[in-house]
């Protein structure tokens, strides 16, 4: 038990520090560790928990609570949550005290500009990895493609796209 808690803490502290660009980039590493390395859950369960974390309010990083819960119960959820949120929050808190002073420095503007394309790439790359990491059949591909197109080209609310996805796969009877 203590071993699992240490694994949860070790994994999510590292991922917390690596979660630049909004945090989507950590999903592939998280999936590899939780599914292939530690065998806390199956690939199917990982995608299910991803779905739950997106269909409920709050940041997507809350998926770590469910992974921790599956691995080690309520204590596991607590350890996973604190490990994932505390390091990045402490960094922002400490930086907030000095950030105003750096407000017009040239390097800050450069850093913000340089990070934007990395963040976009991480968001797209995590989507690609999620598709590759689950055994998708064609109705699921169609739902992913449809929701990508709709949410890119229209102002449709994301929750409507998720509900439509559920309706489609229920109707197809996968």
């Amino acid at each position: 038990m203590t071993g699992v808690l240490a694994q949860l803490a070790g994994l999510f502290v590292v991922l917390s520090l690596l979660s630049v660009g909004g945090g989507n980039g950590v999903l592939p590493d998280m999936q590899r560790a939780a599914v292939d390395q530690y065998h806390w859950l199956t690939a199917r369960q990982f995608l299910d928990l991803f779905a739950i974390s997106r269909a409920t309010p709050g940041p997507g990083a809350l998926i770590v609570l469910l992974i921790g819960f599956k691995a080690a119960g309520v204590i596991g959820a607590l350890v996973a949550g604190i490990s994932m949120f505390a390091p990045s929050c402490v960094i922002v808190h400490l930086a907030a005290r000095y950030w105003d002073r750096a407000a017009r420095s040239a390097w800050r503007e450069l850093a913000e500009r340089a990070l934007a394309p990395v963040a976009v790439g991480l968001t797209l790359g995590s989507g690609i990895a999620l598709i590759r990491g689950t055994e998708h059949d064609w109705p699921a591909y169609a739902v992913t493609a449809g929701s990508t197109l709709l949410l890119t080209l229209t102002e449709l609310h994301p929750m409507i796209a998720l509900a439509a996805g559920a309706a489609v796969l229920l109707a197809v009877g996968t």
């Binding site: 991803f50 699921a140 992913t144 990508t148 796209a161 996805g165 559920a166």
Partner: peptide, 11 residues
Amino acid sequence: AGIGAGAIGLN
């Protein structure tokens, strides 16, 4: 599974 497939699209 439908929500998950849609959520990948959201991503």
